[in-house]
Design a protein around this nucleic acid. Sequence first.
DNA 1: AACAACCTCAACCGCATCAGA
DNA 2: GTCTGATGCGGTTGAGGTTGT
Length: 188
Amino acid sequence: MASVKKELNRGGAWTAEEDKKLAEVIEIHGPKRWKTIAAKAGLNRCGKSCRLRWLNYLRPNIKRGNISDQEEDLILRLHKLLGNRWSLIAGRLPGRTDNEIKNYWNSHLSKKINQREEQSEGSTREFSSKTKKRRISEKAKQEVKEENTSHDSKIKFDLDDFFDFSGENPSTLEWVRKFLELDEGLLP
DNA sequence: AACAACCTCAACCGCATCAGA
DNA sequence: GTCTGATGCGGTTGAGGTTGT
């Protein structure tokens, strides 16, 4: 076990050279059999690591950074609907990865939500950042749990909220319309 | 200028699920 | 049916950067 850890380059940042090798092997063999790809590329990385690098960084048509207001709004709505199903949420945002959305949520949106909640609660209580983080993560877990136990009623409630676009400006509505066309199955 | 505290995000880990033998 | 390896997902960590004191 320890010897494996020694041999593999775990935790280190990927170099341009590694990226190049990985991309070349994937071009030839396709993005599957990651263990084989890792071996063929001659990288001291495990297959999992190669897969993650490809999905989050090297894959074509990846958008990086600059999450627009519309995208942010969509993430908020989808999170409300789906909970921490990052891959599902990412699937609705072309070019975005689950990891990026998860990070964006944890570093930006969860704070916004928290602030809004505290404002709406009218609470004057103060929490340390660690306590806040814990509260957020517990809330997310609870949401997923609730979704699994009372699926229908929860979805019904959230769908009403999710599809409430009153007060949106026309450009946002048009953008949302385009998004919904991606998957008619999302429409109630 | 120096240090601490905080923030961001790439990357890893553990677990669940899937698919083929 | 079950065993095993591959894949996918969400949670967590830690390095590096930024901001505050």
